[in-house]
């Protein structure tokens, strides 16, 4: 098996181990197992980083050109977001939520076509890196927020968790804005039009509107459980934008 595949499988395994650790810690009321979970998650991210670096070296270009590669990049953002925001808000539950989101996404990645192909002419641009990275960072933040929202709905919401959900949503929204803007500028130099209303573009705009509405609803006083539900609905939009458009609709974006 290729070296980077071993590292990706290791990252997946360590993430599952982290989840198991936290589950055991909760069931057996042993907080020390929780610390093992944290370590496992950190190691998982290191393995993923090493794997992605190796893949980059082997491809001779950043691994960002198809759904498999972009999904791994999305995963790569989840861990630092989880660690950072768990520290920032002082909520340790964010890490298991992150691990759960990561594990599910790893499972999804296992179903994808891994074939590495050279970049087609339309993708040969410096804009590829910033456009795909910011979009994946956005999706990662939204995925973590959705995981947090799901957790909150099941276990009850606290003020810190609310704060965490808001911060992640803001982060995701900022990155999504950057992703859409860079995509538009790139489209103008690649296709001759800064907006073609292709399904991917339209759905990313719809996702952006969804989160904008969510943030404004919050200003109007919609908080707590209701906000959590709205975040989950918005994440549904993210999933359709990322996967649904590719599998169910066709358009200019049919590579990622």
């Amino acid at each position: 098996m290729a070296a980077q595949m071993i590292l990706f499988n290791l990252a997946f395994g360590l993430t599952l181990a982290a989840l198991a650790s936290w589950t055991a810690s909760y069931l057996a009321a042993r907080p020390l197992l929780g610390r093992a979970g944290k370590t496992a998650l950190g190691l998982a991210w290191l393995a993923l980083t090493a794997g992605l670096t190796l893949l980059w070296v082997r491809l001779g270009r950043p691994p960002l050109s198809n759904q498999y590669e972009s999904l791994l990049t999305l995963l790569w953002f989840i861990y630092p977001f989880a660690f950072y925001f768990s520290r920032r808000t002082g909520r340790p539950e964010i890490l298991p939520a992150g691990a759960l989101a990561a594990a599910l996404l790893f499972g999804l990645a296992a179903l994808m076509d891994r074939t590495a192909r050279p970049l087609m002419p339309a993708l040969r641009s410096d804009w590829l890196v910033i456009h795909v990275l910011s979009s994946m960072a956005a999706y990662a933040a939204f995925a973590l927020a959705a995981a947090g929202a799901a957790w909150a709905l099941l276990r009850g919401l606290s003020e810190d968790l609310e704060d965490f959900l808001l911060r992640l949503t803001k982060t995701g929204f900022a990155f999504l804005t950057l992703g859409i803007a860079t995509g538009s500028v790139w489209a103008e130099s690649a296709w001759g039009s800064w907006w073609s209303w292709d399904p991917k573009e339209t759905w990313s705009l719809l996702t952006w509107l969804g989160y904008a509405a969510a943030l404004h609803l919050r200003r109007k006083g919609i908080r707590g459980t209701k906000f959590g539900i709205i975040l989950l609905v918005c994440f549904g939009l993210v999933l359709f934008t990322y996967f649904g458009v590719n599998f169910l609709l066709s358009g200019l974006h049919s590579y990622a």
Binding site: W197, P199, T202, W203, L205, L206, L209, G210, L217, R219
Partner: peptide, 29 residues
């Protein structure tokens, strides 16, 4: 008003959903 904003979001969402999922004729845009 923010109410108008939410209303517009819904209308735009409806237009996008209709266009990307159902419309076979000239694009609504």
């Amino acid at each position: 008003s923010l109410r108008l904003f939410f209303f517009l979001c819904l209308l735009l969402a409806a237009a996008f959903l209709y266009q990307t999922l159902f419309n076979r004729g000239a694009p609504v845009y």
